[in-house]
Design a protein around this nucleic acid. Structure first.
Length: 827
RNA sequence: GCCGGGGUGGCGGAAUUGGUAGACGCAAGGGACUUAAAAUCCCUCGAACUUACAGUUCAUGCCGGUUCGAUUCCGGCCUCCGGCACCA
């Protein structure tokens, strides 16, 4: 092989860099196309095939769109604040900043080796002051809009990471990053009021027609809207209201007890806890439960009767009040009406404590006996024992009872969401400091905008502990009060890294702007992101936060869009031994080894060819040979035809030469298939297989490489190859650029237009029609394309073979699908 | 428990609106070239039966249904993978 792939790749990589072929111009005449991959965390590991898949998908798409004539923005940056840097730094005893910088250097080089075409002039790094200055600015904007607030509450604490976490970062009671068990702690923390946007975050999912349904459903579930009614039960003998939230007011006549969460305010209101050791003990017991225990199947419902009764406002019935371990305080009112007959949890509870069961809904034609019930009846049915509502369907009754309750003034319709506010403070060093100052005399202040950034001090003992490492840096902590100039203290928590990544896609539009986070005109030129690509693991976390922040910035008139990502594509993961490839699991397949052995184009081509991009792919070392062979076949055939003296031919017209004719048609079919495959959902795998088929077709020309085929055919082959190389370019850019020049073309292949196909050249003159008898394939006959049903029928019925097949049988029906098949139905 | 998405050769995977199941590639087998190997090129390749070398039957998780015709549509299961989870 006369081709040194490695040299070719290096040559074009530096050429592209020099000519800035991938830079994007604000306000170009071309239509804009913002292609964005979720930016990586610079974890320092060598890129493995999982990473490669991510970046290559984005690169193939951007190169394609560039050739389609778009003004493409394809930037790269680093989500570089966060725990891994800090943990690695602690372990290796270097500063997280240096660790991060070093990793960025390594990863950048590897991305360049892969030939990923980024606009490197727009590179951003979230841990640099020029970036996090604006993350702090964002905090101030939210604070001013009362969307950032501090409150004391029960929060998720990861003992291993020594910090609190947002609900979204707790997966089944386990820390999303380090997998240790989360404990609940009572702490004062900073929150972003994402709940205020719950309804809009839910509604606008409708507009995201090009997001995967799966992701939208996950967000919908997470937001967890439910419509119901808050009903006021009353504490017996005292005029204290105990509101409960329910989605099933139709079951209110079946209430036989009231269940409270252990932190319910009523307890402190009517008891002195010190005098009630039983309550105290129960509370502690419930609070010691870990999340994992609470959600396990074996979890047993427990309760404590507090010797008090409540009055059901609808029928004045007296029901006992229990403290329970299964009512969650954070949702609804922290109090629930117990309807054992129609709620399985309540049913289990009364079976344990021998409370009565009262049936108020029955199936249409069947009575239910409370004494013999084995489980709660939760289906629809007819109301019974429900006063004036008895006899009607429970579905109608939900609305009727709700009306009645509202009229009587004993309750009010309400909508509840499962979504909780976003806890954004972290007790760790490597993050953007929260720009807040506390003055003992004047109170809480934000750091004035013009004083940003609040710099993260460099010399810090960042070993984790109960308080943020920043609290130990007196030069950082001690400041003078902006108002009284007295001794004040800075907030020492840093922000969740997801705050940094909630707005980075905006910064790419004007990465260097000094006075604003992003230029208003330019950001509105580029936004929304036309295609966002990333892993499904961010379906809720990052994607929900980014949508929220975009809406806030829209409300503040910094943005014209309410949704940041117009189209979302979630690519599958690369697995090894059934598990996600990751450094920590030690199952990575490093990309550089493969690039060294096969070249970047082969590695790129293979990862795209191996599986459809949305699917997980179990890595297999063998398959890559196939793509390597394919590229070599392409090189060989171009090598031969590039040097032939040829004449100018038009490959958009049918030639007279029979071989050339078929070749031209195959080429046009290939253009169509490759284009459609990319357009209809990034089917790069089938696009590449079409390219392989085209090459195979060429090789079927007898002795293609060993003989002179004549000027006419040579010219057509050479001309087809130039078009073919254009189709190959997004996937295997280096060799395509090289072969483009080899074929005598000037200018970068990435400045060429994507080939167009002639529709008329994608169809054949003759079509093979399948002959079926009773639905079974029996024969094939060739017809002119578009032949009439009559002629097909007559020809087939007169065919000797067909005649013998249906000989002596009665023809009951004949179905003809033009250009496809004919089915003769006999008995 | 609830909500999604999948099950196609030895393997990764293809199959417009229901219309030739298995494209393309890997692995395997055979042949050509070669002193030999590598590379390359060509052929075969779901299973079973029959050998008339052309056929027949069975095959897209399982069982039914609709249809001239079902990997595709409908119903019921099995199973794998995700997400949520005492949310009242």
């Amino acid at each position: 092989m006369s081709y040194n792939l490695k040299e070719i790749e290096k040559k074009w990589q530096s050429e592209w860099e020099k000519t800035k072929i991938f830079s994007s111009t604000d306000f170009s005449d071309k239509a804009k196309y913002y292609a964005l991959m979720m930016f990586p965390y610079p974890s320092g590991s060598r890129l493995h095939m999982g990473h490669v898949r991510n970046y290559v998908i984005g690169d193939a798409l951007s190169r394609y769109q560039r050739m389609r004539g778009f003004n493409v923005l394809h930037p790269m940056g680093w989500d570089s604040f966060g725990l891994p840097a800090e943990n690695a730094a602690i372990k290796e005893n270097i500063h997280p900043g240096n660790w991060t910088k070093e990793n960025i250097k390594i990863m950048t080089e590897q991305l360049k080796n892969l030939g990923i075409g980024y606009d490197w002039d727009r590179e951003i790094t979230t841990c640099e002051a020029e970036y996090y200055k604006w993350t702090q600015w964002l905090f101030l904007k939210l604070y001013k809009k009362q969307l950032a607030y501090k409150k004391k509450s029960t929060v998720n604490w990861c003992p291993s990471c020594s910090t609190v976490l947002a609900n979204e970062q707790v997966v089944n009671g386990i820390c999303w990053r380090c997998k240790s068990e989360i404990v609940q702690k009572e702490l004062e923390q900073w929150f972003f009021k994402i709940t205020e946007y719950a309804q809009r975050l839910l509604d606008d999912l409708q507009e995201l027609s090009n997001w995967p349904e799966k992701v939208k459903l996950m967000q919908e579930n997470w937001i967890g809207k439910s419509k119901g009614i808050e009903i006021n039960f009353v504490l017996e003998d005292k005029n204290i209201l105990i509101p409960v939230f329910t989605t099933r007011p139709d079951t209110i006549y079946g209430v036989t007890f009231l269940a409270l969460g252990v932190d319910h305010p009523l307890i402190n209101e009517i008891f002195s806890i010190e005098k009630n050791p039983a309550i105290q003990k129960f509370k502690e017991e419930v609070k010691s439960l870990t999340l994992t225990m609470r959600i396990s199947d074996q979890f047993e419902k427990k309760g404590l009767f507090i010797n008090k009764y409540a009055i059901n406002p609808i029928n004045k019935e007296r029901v006992p009040i229990f403290l329970t371990n299964y009512v969650v305080m954070e949702y609804g009112t922290g109090a629930v009406m117990g309807v054992p007959a129609h709620d399985q949890r309540d049913f289990e509870f009364v079976k344990k404590y021998n409370l009565p069961i009262k049936v108020v809904i029955c199936p249409k034609d069947k009575a239910i006996n409370a004494d013999t019930m084995l489980e709660a009846y939760v289906d629809t049915g007819i109301q019974v024992n429900s006063d004036k509502f008895s006899g009607s369907s429970n579905v109608d009754t939900i609305e009727k009872i709700s009306d009645f309750i509202e009229e009587k003034g004993i309750g009010k319709r309400k909508i509840n969401y499962k979504l909780r506010d976003w806890l954004i403070s972290r007790q760790r060093y490597w993050g953007a400091p929260i720009p807040i100052i506390y003055c003992p005399t004047c109170g809480i202040f934000t750091v004035p905008e013009e004083q940003l950034p609040v710099l993260l001090p460099e010399k810090v003992d960042f070993m984790p502990g109960a308080i943020s490492p920043l609290a130990k840096v007196s030069e950082f902590v001690n400041v003078s009060c902006p108002k009284c100039q007295g001794q004040a203290k800075r907030e020492t928590d840093t922000m969740d890294t997801f705050v940094c990544s909630s707005w980075y896609y905006l910064r790419f539009t004007t990465p260097d702007s000094k006075d604003v986070p992003f230029d208003n005109k330019i950001v509105n030129y580029w936004m929304p992101v036309d295609q966002y690509i990333g892993g499904v693991e961010h379906a809720i976390l990052h994607l929900l936060y980014a949508r929220f922040i975009t809406k806030v910035l829209y409300d503040l008139k910094y943005l014209n869009v309410q949704e940041p990502f117009k189209n979302l594509f979630t690519q599958g993961m690369v697995l090894k031994d059934g598990q996600v490839m990751s450094k920590s699991k030690g199952n990575t397949v490093p990309a550089d080894d493969l690039i060294e052995k096969y070249g970047a184009d082969t590695v790129r081509g293979f990862i795209l060819f191996a599986a459809p991009p949305e699917k997980d792919y179990e890595w297999d070392n063998h398959g890559i040979e196939g793509v390597s062979r394919f590229i070599n076949r392409v090189i060989r055939v171009v090598e031969k035809f590039a040097d032939y003296p040829t004449k100018i031919v038009d490959i958009n017209c049918l030639p007279s030469n029979e071989i050339a004719k078929i070749l031209v048609k195959t080429l046009h079919k290939t253009i169509k298939r490759v284009t459609d495959d990319i357009e209809k959902g990034f089917h790069f795998n089938t696009a590449i297989s079409s390219l392989m088929e085209f090459t195979n077709h060429l090789y079927l020309i007898e002795n293609l490489l060993d003989r002179d085929l004549g000027e006419e055919l040579n010219s057509y082959i050479k001309e087809s190859l130039t078009t073919f190389i254009l189709l190959l370019a997004p996937f295997c850019p280096h060799i395509s650029e090289e072969l483009w020049k080899k074929l005598g073309k000037t200018g970068s292949i990435f400045r060429q237009n994507w080939p167009k196909y002639e529709n008329s050249l994608t169809t054949d003159a003759q079509t093979l029609i399948v002959v079926q008898v009773n639905g079974k394939l029996k024969h094939k006959l060739s017809f002119s394309t578009g032949e009439t049903i009559e002629i097909i029928k007559n020809t087939v019925l007169n065919d000797i073979k067909v005649k013998s097949l249906i000989d002596g049988k009665e023809i009951k029906n004949i179905i003809v699908v033009p250009d496809k098949l004919i089915n003769i139905v006999t008995n």
